[in-house]
Computed example of a mutant assay.
Amino acid sequence: MRPDEYWKNFNLGTELDIAGRFLFNGLLAFHEMEHFAAEEDAFEFLYSVAVGVERLLKIAIILTEHDTAVDQESFEKSLITHTHQDLALRLREPHSLKFPARENEFIALLGQFYTSQRYSRYSLNSVFAPTHERDKLVKFLEKHLDIKIDTSGWLTITRNERKHRKFIGKVVSKIVNPVHQIIEDEARRLNIYTYEIDYQSKASKIFLSKKFDFEDEDILQAELLAYFLSSEACGPNAQLIRDLIKPLPFDPAREGEYLAALRCDRKKIAVLDELEALYEDVTNFKERRELLEASALENLTYGEEVEDEDIEDFDFDNSEDGDGR
């Protein structure tokens, strides 16, 4: 295999997975936003999506434009840009790639953010426009959803709802899917496999499942909770938890917060503080933690062939890397 073939087949395949992970992380950040007031939330979303789209466009450009006759140094220099609109234009003629006006506007928003705004707070001038990326995102949502978003009121602040998440997912999908199709078509033309993605990777959600929101994940959590709370959960993990792990006295009034903590990492912070306080009354802390770690193993051995009361006989399947496999 020639160096250029290896580059396009393997290195760009890795880049495709990386691009998908950035897109996944950005969409998840938007999914977990409670409201639109925090500029940090807008930054996290825009940064990840901007990087993901940029890398995706560059993969498509390389597969489309590069051949052994090009000046390699000049070609690589032409990729050193963060202007998303210019990158997209390089795919317009060879692939008739034309985005709708709304998606073009969002691409421009990503480009402006990445080239002009992501480091702006390191400048003293930022005091005159401290929330520019948030405000740009809010204006985009207000314009295309025909709504008014409140970012200043204490009681009237606009919450991030399903309609906002579905809209953003649709916009990103209409940018990502056509570019990914170009990558797949060009890879097939070159008889390489750049488009192949591990189905367990974050990128598989974007490029294989083509899902751009996290509603299914939220439903999955609810379904799994329903299962584990029922008598149908009779495998080794559920049995160990029921038999040997006494629940801590969490507050029933906060059950909604606890469920949210299962879905969202940032929600775990407050609950972790409560957990630390509850642990102060646990006398067999080390044993409890060992049992909890064992309960999460994918290949746990526990059940009829093991004496329930004799934890010394458990096969926790603990390997050196701690994954239990």
Rank of each mutant, 00 (worst) to 15 (best):
M1N: 11
R2C: 01
K8Y: 07
D17V: 11
D17Q: 09
A19E: 07
L23S: 11
L27H: 02
L28N: 08
H31W: 15
E32N: 07
E32A: 01
M33P: 06
A37M: 15
E44Q: 13
Y47E: 07
A50H: 06
V51H: 13
A60W: 05
A60C: 04
D67A: 07
D67S: 00
A69M: 04
D71Y: 12
S74W: 08
K77N: 12
I80Y: 15
H82F: 12
H82D: 05
H95R: 10
F99C: 02
P100F: 03
P100T: 02
E105T: 02
A108M: 00
F113I: 01
R118P: 03
R121E: 01
S123N: 03
D135N: 06
K136L: 02
L141Y: 11
H144K: 02
D146Y: 09
G153V: 11
W154G: 01
R159P: 05
E161A: 07
Q181S: 03
Q181Y: 04
D185A: 06
E186N: 13
A187W: 03
I192E: 07
I192R: 13
L208Y: 03
D216F: 14
I219Q: 14
Q221G: 01
A226Y: 01
G235W: 00
P236K: 08
Q239E: 13
L240S: 02
D243N: 06
L248W: 04
F250S: 04
R254V: 09
E255G: 08
E257T: 00
E257S: 05
A260R: 00
C264A: 01
L275R: 00
E280D: 00
F285E: 10
K286Q: 08
E287N: 03
E290T: 03
E293I: 13
N299L: 11
T301M: 06
E307D: 02
E309P: 00
E309I: 06
F314Y: 12
F316Y: 10
E320R: 08
G322E: 12
D323S: 08
D323H: 11
